[in-house]
Design a binder for these strands. Structure first.
Lengths: 241, 241
DNA sequence: CCTTGCCAACTGGTCCAACCAGTTGCTACC
DNA sequence: GGTAGCAACTGGTTGGACCAGTTGGCAAGG
């Protein structure tokens, strides 16, 4: 049994973050004082302080010396890294995330096609081959119904190269934010991404377009691929706000 | 004179973060022990711990009990919120950020046109009027050469409404990440955004398209607007990676 | 009565000192 | 020479104390 020692400050952080993101405490509310929290969680005040520092770093609370620590409106002050902390059971959140991914992916494909270096193209070809092999193996082993995590990993590595090939650090960081913690939802991600992962034809077209420096074709292929997943996520409904 | 008291933990955090983001310490390197750092910065170990917690939260370091704290490759592990912490003098970073913004803005415009509620449309009309008024005032006061921060604020509020109208929390958070700390660079942002801020015709077309639920026209208008700024940021060069 | 000023009781910020709990590497024993 | 174990690191946690801002009520003055 993995003991999975979790630092007490992390316990406090997770609890407070969950209270804020779930709306149990509302923006403008004050959170209890550090001394009160340290009693409530039965930990030392220093641990509480470390947790509060992290909340502050995440843009969830505003701390003021002498005054109360207030909860901020994370929809206004939070950064993209909060996305993976939102309640994963909310399919609206998932759709929102994949819409953003679709938007960025199309641009990434186009810019990768326009800017990829020879080195990038070589990496892309290698990853594409690995992905194709994984797909073959997956279809042969699991059948076409349920692609495994291995295929998803190979697909991610493919996009990894594309993102790097854009030479744009902002795309890179946004991509990181969208992926962080996705390991926790890999199981469900595979379901949503099924059609996208198994569309070999369009994937090949995407790779070919990038290798051929055809930005428009690359963008179109990326759009087609991501559309599969958006369709899988209740296409007719707008995501919850 | 504003004393601008900065908590010591923030001083340590800023120093360590700068060392990492600037590359003075490389991924895989170990950072000095907490006790060493507390001596070096002449602060208490708890202050160092709070700083390290924030570094950990930002995805810049990996802490392991008993072992050394190692620097991570922030280009792989960092989130979008790091973007505004990157050296602002690097024009490549600015171009990367505005490319991402352009990508998202086009999608935001299209989805806002498709999904805006009557309430959203009313807000949009109000903000559009306020922006137009600010532009008139700006041109009359400062001349067409240098739009002031007030115009930029009005423009941001306009986009604020559009982002909310998409009903997509991911767009909202990404938008937040792109704006955070931009106040620090408002002066330079105004220069880059000049042509975009003063293109009244296209701005009006964008608002009209959203009010008219014309997603394609909204996307096109947004693309035209953001293209102005990308052109201002050395259009012929790819951003530095 | 109302205003004004001060002080006490909060809040967070910082420090010291100690100990617990993992990791690492050298050393001394087998 | 191999290995068990001890020491000397590392981070994790605790307690207590004090400094430094903010807040609100209470009392003295108008």
């Amino acid at each position: 049994m993995p003991d999975a020692r979790v630092p007490v400050s992390t316990v406090v952080y997770d609890a407070l973050r969950a209270d804020i993101l779930s709306g149990r405490v509302r923006p403008g509310d004050g959170i209890p004082s550090e001394r009160t929290l340290s009693e409530r969680f039965e930990v030392n005040r220093h641990a509480v302080r470390e947790a509060v520092k992290r909340l502050q770093q995440a843009g969830l609370v505003q701390v003021s010396h002498g005054g109360a620590t207030r909860v901020l409106d994370w929809r206004r002050t939070g950064g993209l890294e909060l996305l993976v902390d939102l309640p994963p059971e909310d399919v609206g959140v998932a759709r929102a995330a994949y819409e953003l991914r679709a938007c960025i992916a199309a641009d990434v494909a186009a810019r990768a096609a326009a800017r990829a270096t020879d080195e990038d193209r070589a990496s892309l070809a290698a990853r594409a081959a690995a992905f194709a092999a994984a797909r073959e193996h997956c279809v042969a082993t699991d059948g076409p119904v349920s692609p495994g995590p291995a295929l998803l990993d190979a697909y991610r590595e493919l996009w990894d190269v594309l993102v790097d090939a854009t030479g744009n650090i902002a795309y890179r960081l946004a991509y990181n934010s969208l992926l962080h913690g996705e390991d926790a939802v890999t199981a469900v991600a595979v379901i949503y991404l099924r059609d996208e992962l198994l569309d070999a034809e369009t994937t090949d077209a995407l790779v070919a377009a990038v290798l051929d420096s055809d930005a428009d074709a690359a963008r179109a292929a990326a759009a087609t691929l991501t559309a599969h997943t958006l369709t899988a996520l209740s296409p007719t409904e707008a995501p919850s706000r």
